[in-house]
Amino acid sequence: MNTPTLFGLCAAALVGVGLYGMIVNPQPLRKILAFNLIGSGVFLLFGAIARRGAAVGMGGDPVPQALLITGIVVAFSATALAVALVRRLFDEAGSATLAAEAPAKAKADPPTP
């Protein structure tokens, strides 16, 4: 097994673990962490692809590396937004669960115009 394949398999494992966590875990914060695991898997895969696709004499294909950095920035801002929302929710509702189902609450709450 060569190095890119090893990294590719690690990436697949990360994506799988993250996907499982994102679907199964009820807490928003754990879901956000699971999203970051999937993201790490994707970035690792992209890195492995950059290495595999390198031309002779080059360390790696530069295009995926440039995209990778942009992807990390986007994932970082997504995480920041999600964590900010969780914190606000916790401050206002006293807990940060998604479980209080909307339809039941929505009847009690007056809607906004």
Binding site: P28, I38, V42, A78, A82, L89, A102
Partner: peptide
């Protein structure tokens, strides 16, 4: 800014994040 809409927004964001990371994986 009501807690109820924050919860809807968070649920929307989590669905959307899963969606975009799957999209990115496909693109990779």
């Amino acid at each position: 800014g009501r807690a109820e809409t924050r919860r809807s927004a968070l649920r929307y964001l989590l669905y959307a994040l899963l969606g975009s990371v799957l999209y990115l994986l496909g693109a990779v």
